[in-house]
Design a protein around this nucleic acid. Structure first.
Lengths: 129, 129
DNA sequence: CGGTATCCCATGCGATACTG
DNA sequence: CAGTATCGCATGGGATACCG
């Protein structure tokens, strides 16, 4: 039997996902270059398409659109259209998206606090051949 | 001024990273296909190279080695070598790695619990053209 | 404004083979 | 056992142009 990570309990032995299980696909959407950043950004407040693009430095419209579509399909993000002219589209986290975004905010917060330590570790690592 | 995410406070307005800041590179190591899975897996217990490979379904030795190297350089993972023959190499989280892995375990736990809801959302999404 | 379509290149990543 | 080296393709993803 494969060792791999079933989404078991908090105290379970293995935590991850098998290569083919549906959870793994969702996991990949989240653990992607833009997915995580998107969830964290939307975790702060709902945003419209262009504001989202401006808030996430470096993302192209294509990837923004594509990543949003995955997250909407997974039920983590909701797409709200006001049928004005021009249209006004807002994206916001669903309750489930919010649950998942919360630990990600923690992650980013911790990471931000630890950047100096990490930089120091990199310098130390690079010093030795 | 760019909107982008400085690693500010828990209650700060923006949370993410600018495209070029050092935190973003680390963030990308974590938010990669294998980085997140690796941190979660090592969050449970230290593991040797081959066990790690067996624990993370689908990872190749190349990507395992490469991703581990990034994480070691960032100071999130420690590499312990017992100079026996054959050598025995164990990887474990550093304290900083542990801090960052904790919210990721939460994420995976939440995700696991929500898989049924997510699957339902996907079905609903696919139903409408 | 909020996208989609197309093109195309960079790289991520797996497969295989080899090494200390 | 714990990797590195090389190869090659599939995919990610940026640039540009276009549409309702």
């Amino acid at each position: 039997m494969k060792k791999n990570v079933q989404p078991t309990s908090p105290e379970g032995e293995t935590i991850a996902f098998t290569a083919e299980c549906p959870g793994r696909a969702v996991f990949n959407h989240i653990a992607s270059r833009w997915g995580l950043l998107l969830l964290v950004t939307l975790g702060e407040r709902p945003l419209r398409f262009h504001l989202l693009r401006d808030s996430i430095e470096g993302i192209s419209e294509k990837m923004l659109s594509q990543t949003l579509k995955f997250l909407v399909r997974d039920g983590l993000v909701r797409r709200l259209v006001e049928p004005t002219i021009p249209p006004r589209v807002t994206y916001e986290l669903t309750p489930i998206g919010g649950e998942l975004a919360a630990p990600l905010r923690d992650l980013v917060g911790q990471l931000g606090r630890r950047v100096p330590d990490i930089l120091a570790a990199q310098v130390a690592y690079d010093r030795q051949p």
